[in-house]
Computed example of a mutant assay.
Amino acid sequence: MAKRKPKKRTEDYKKQVGQVPGAVIYTGKKDFNPLLMESFDYNSDFCNEKQLKSVEEAFAYKATDSISWININGLNNVDEIEKIGNHYHLHPLVLEDIVSTNQRPKIDEYEDYIFIVLKMMYYDAEEKIVSEQVSFVLGSNYVLTFQEAEGDVFDPLRERIRQGKGRIRGLGSDYLLYALIDSIVDHYYAIIETMGNKIEDLEDSLFEGLTKDEISTEIQSLKREVLKVRRAIFPLREIISRVDKSESKLIDQKTLHYFADVYDHIIQVSDTIDIYREMIWGLMDMYMTTISNRMNEVMKVLTIIATIFIPLTFIAGVYGMNFDNIPELHYKYGYHIVWGVMIIIFIGMMYYFKRKKWL
């Protein structure tokens, strides 16, 4: 018996099986992304944006008096990730979680920094959900973000930093962390809005009686999308709740009000996702009911046709027997009489079916 080839999802998890805890092993699928780093160093008076050419350029931001955001793309470059981690004194288990892209969203508090893992999601041009793990390290005057590949949802925040809009440049690194998380949560709203439109379109199609194979495929695809978003958003409630109860000196009490607002948004998105999940199950039931109703209509028509032909077949069978002494066999108008009786039976049965509203 041939051995079944394991699925790619299973292979991703097997990459870390048996490894020493703290081993920095990349488990993602994007193995050929170059290391791209950018930095925003700012305070209320200035903002310096820079594309970093080497890991060593990121080291200087740890000791500045300003606020620094260092964004690292390309988790497959594990050697460079380790260099950054060693300079910022990140725990080996933190580095392991950063490059392990199958992490569940979580928060870990250390003495000098707070580590958070989230799932960033958005729709691409083909309206397919792009899901990417983003890791955050909050320090006293910096925030490190680690992404698997280039492309994210932080462009509006970058523009706010450049132009000094809002409170971003007047507050600390904890507010910067809030702004980054808020950008991710805001895109969950865009996702559920698109999902809501898809559900309404499917409902309209099912109400119109459309039962194409594509509809069942769309329902299954939408169900997978809802479950993916739910797995990402559900642990966020615990993370923000932990932040709200944290006694870390890295988070100012004033910033907790902003995290409370994010928590409210997460609850709203989570409740909407649960509603959509129930609606999708309802769509599947509606689809199966529509299929069943159409099958019943077909069976009803076939049953009526068969019922009509039963007496006609009986009459034709009787007068088709090869006996010499059939009474009407030699009657001059026997053929026409038989046809008349059959037509009368047909009309009578049609009238009866109409009265019973079976037609």
Rank of each mutant, 00 (worst) to 15 (best):
A2Q: 11
K3P: 04
K8P: 11
R9K: 11
R9L: 05
T10S: 12
T10K: 09
K14E: 02
P21H: 08
K30L: 01
E38M: 11
D45C: 07
E49C: 03
A60E: 07
Y61I: 01
K62L: 08
T64K: 05
I70T: 04
L75E: 04
L75N: 04
N77D: 06
I81V: 13
I81E: 00
N86P: 05
L90I: 06
L93W: 12
L95M: 15
I114L: 08
I116L: 14
M120A: 13
Y122D: 07
D124W: 08
D124T: 07
A125Y: 13
K128E: 09
V130C: 13
S131K: 13
S131A: 14
S140Y: 01
N141Q: 09
T145G: 04
Q147M: 02
E150K: 10
V153D: 01
F154T: 00
D155R: 01
P156R: 12
L157Q: 05
R158I: 06
R160Q: 06
R167C: 09
G170K: 15
L176S: 07
D186I: 00
A190S: 08
I191L: 15
I192V: 15
M195P: 00
K198P: 00
K198E: 02
E200G: 03
D201L: 12
E203G: 14
D204A: 14
S205E: 13
S205R: 15
L206I: 10
G209F: 00
K212W: 02
K212M: 09
I215E: 14
E218N: 12
E218R: 11
Q220C: 03
S221P: 00
A232E: 04
F234R: 00
P235L: 08
E238D: 13
K245Y: 13
E247T: 15
S248N: 04
K249S: 15
T255D: 00
L256C: 03
H257V: 12
H257M: 06
A260H: 15
I267Y: 02
I267P: 00
D274V: 05
W281V: 10
G282E: 05
T290S: 14
S292E: 11
N293P: 04
N296V: 13
E297S: 00
V298H: 04
M299E: 01
V301R: 01
T303K: 02
I304R: 01
I304W: 01
A306F: 10
A306R: 07
I315M: 09
I315D: 01
Y319A: 09
G320M: 08
N322L: 03
D324N: 14
N325T: 11
N325K: 04
Y333H: 08
H336G: 11
H336Y: 12
I337R: 03
V338A: 14
V338D: 01
W339Y: 11
M342R: 05
I343R: 09
F346N: 10
Y351S: 07
